[in-house]
């Protein structure tokens, strides 16, 4: 079964300490973990750094296997990252892209199976009509969905998703996250998802990681992490946690907290 344990993850960009000593308790297979925090909190960096060897004191997966020093190429078989930027607009078609992805990585899929897999994934995300159209004729949202199908085709053990729904409409935002949730649960894998929309995070994540300026502020059940106090401290907003008519919690953001700017005395 997939597990993931991260001990003392540090990352420096030159002299800038981007990730400060992040230690997470063991994540279990079947868990969807949300990564939240304001801009420049280190969410993307955290996801990317899991692909770089030697940044953490220790990373273990699969119960006990130590993968701290494994190379980036080997790691990308365990971790699958969907980047924030969708596939670039070129005259490549999604079908060709998925096909070459499978073959460039030597995925163990025969032509027959690959053919079915690609058609299935494209249909799942409403891309059947765009499959043979060039990427530069697709909208930003559609290209983001293509990026997602690329990740799903690789089927890694640990899914790292960086803002997977940023360009999507209401329907796809919800269906993408629930598809991922179902898949993680069914295959007992782990997903780490960076999200800006805290209500989506409340709705779809089993646990949340709250980052601020490269530091781990809180980790745990969504409602334990997204407290009114944390929202005010980290996000600088006045917010209330409410319960909707359906009985689900909801974050109502009231107003930004304005920092007092000290006027310089001449």
């Amino acid at each position: 079964m997939t597990t993931l344990e991260i001990t003392q993850l540090n990352l420096w960009y030159g002299k800038f300490h981007a990730l400060k000593d992040i230690t997470l308790p063991k994540l279990q297979g079947g868990e969807v973990v949300g990564l939240v925090g304001p801009n420049a909190a280190g969410k993307s960096t955290f996801l990317k750094s899991l692909l770089w060897p030697g940044k953490a004191k220790q990373i273990t997966s699969y119960g006990s296997a130590d993968i701290t020093q494994t190379s980036r190429i080997e790691r990308s078989r365990i971790f699958g990252l969907m980047t924030q930027t969708p596939p670039q607009a070129s005259s490549l078609t999604p079908y060709e892209l998925l096909w070459s992805l499978a073959r460039a990585l030597n995925l163990p899929l025969s032509n027959e199976i690959l053919k079915k897999e690609i058609a299935l994934k494209l249909e799942q995300f409403g891309l059947s009509d765009e499959a043979l159209k060039p990427l530069d004729s697709l909208s930003g949202g559609k290209r983001q969905l293509v990026g997602l199908t690329m990740l799903l085709l690789r089927s890694p053990d640990i899914y790292l998703l960086d803002e997977p729904t940023s360009a999507l409409d209401l329907h796809w935002r919800l269906s993408v996250l629930s598809e991922i949730r179902d898949l993680i649960l069914a295959q007992q894998k782990i997903a780490l998802i960076a999200l800006h929309d805290l209500n989506l995070a409340l709705k779809f994540c089993d646990k949340l990681i709250l980052l601020h300026k490269g530091e781990l502020i809180a980790f745990g059940k969504p409602l334990d992490v997204l407290t009114e106090q944390n929202l005010s401290d980290v996000y600088q907003v006045e917010a209330k946690i409410e319960t909707t008519n359906n009985g689900t919690p909801r974050i109502e953001v009231i107003a930004p907290i304005k920092k007092k700017i000290q006027a310089s005395v001449i």
């Binding site: 692909l51 892209l97 992805l101």
Partner: peptide, 18 residues
């Protein structure tokens, strides 16, 4: 295959482990 994949952008290719 790598060249075809690269046409989807450098970011994509690196995140995949190329």
């Amino acid at each position: 295959w790598v060249m075809t994949l690269l046409r989807s952008g450098e970011n994509q290719a690196t995140s995949i482990g190329i």
